[in-house]
Each structure stands twice: as structure tokens, then as C-alpha cells.
Computed example of a mutant assay.
Amino acid sequence: MTPLIKALSTLALVLVLGGSALAQEYVKGEVVKVDAKQQKLTIKHEPLTNLDMPAMTMVFVVAEQGLLDKVKTGQAIEFRADRVNGRITVTDIK
């Protein structure tokens, strides 16, 4: 493989990976309900542009149990959500 082809391949990979990371941004919301047993959060949120969803209140599964420890009902949060195994999932909370 020539150096030019290697460089272009690397650049293409960086753009693809970087683009997907940029698409997933933090969204403001308010925790309406915490269901630790089912590992779910009900969140009233702003539009989720990466998922093409309008602002609404909906139930999300969480990617890991530790995310539930960060929140309580009525708390304002900023979070990331994405499709994971076909389910809309909260992947991070700050």
C-alpha cells in the first residue's frame, strides 16, 4: 500500500469515527422517575438530534447501573443517549 493510500485511509477512518462521536452530544433534561430495579430513567428532555427525536418525556434504559446512582427524581441533568442493541439508552450523565 502506498503512503498516500495509507494516509487517505487513516483520514477516512478518523472522519467516520469522529463524526459519530460529534453526533452524540449532551442534552438537557429533568429526571421524572428513577426505576433502579428495572435500570430505567424517565426523563423530560430537549430534542435528541442524534436520534431525530423531538422534546418529550420518555423512559430510557441506562447503559450501566452506576448512572442511576448519579441522579434523583426532580434533578436537572445533561445526558447522552443513543441506540444500543436496538434500545434507546442513556450512555452518560454529567
Rank of each mutant, 00 (worst) to 15 (best):
E25Q: 15
K70D: 01
E46Y: 01
A12S: 11
V84N: 07
A55S: 14
E64Q: 06
I93D: 03
A12P: 07
Q75A: 06
A81K: 02
P47W: 03
K70W: 09
K6F: 15
G19P: 05
H45N: 08
G18L: 09
M53Y: 05
L48T: 06
M53I: 12
D92R: 11
I77V: 13
F79L: 02
T2D: 14
K33Q: 09
F79Q: 07
I93G: 04
T91C: 00
E30D: 08
L4Q: 15
A36W: 00
V61P: 00
E46T: 03
L15E: 12
Q75N: 04
F79Y: 08
G74E: 11
K28F: 03
V32L: 04
P54Y: 10
S20L: 12
S9M: 13
L48M: 10
L68N: 15
G29N: 01
K37H: 04
D92Y: 06
R87T: 11
T57C: 05
M58R: 13
K72H: 15
V84E: 03
R87C: 01
L17M: 12
V32N: 14
L41E: 08
Q38S: 14
H45E: 12
P54A: 12
K44I: 00
G18A: 12
T42H: 05
T89K: 00
E64H: 11
T49C: 00
T10P: 04
T89W: 00
F79K: 02
A7I: 13
T73A: 15
V27N: 07
P54G: 11
K70R: 11
T10K: 15
A23C: 04
T49V: 12
L51Q: 02
P3E: 11
S9W: 04
G18R: 09
V34G: 14
A7G: 09
V84L: 07
Y26L: 10
L15G: 14
A36T: 14
D52N: 15
Q38E: 14
Q24R: 08
Q39A: 05
M1A: 11
A81S: 08
K37Q: 04
D35S: 05
R87E: 14
P47F: 01
I88K: 08
L68D: 09
V61W: 00
V59T: 15
T73W: 01
V31F: 01
Q75C: 07
D69W: 02
K94S: 11
G29Y: 02
T73N: 15
V61Q: 02
T57Q: 10
Q38W: 09
L41Y: 05
P54S: 09
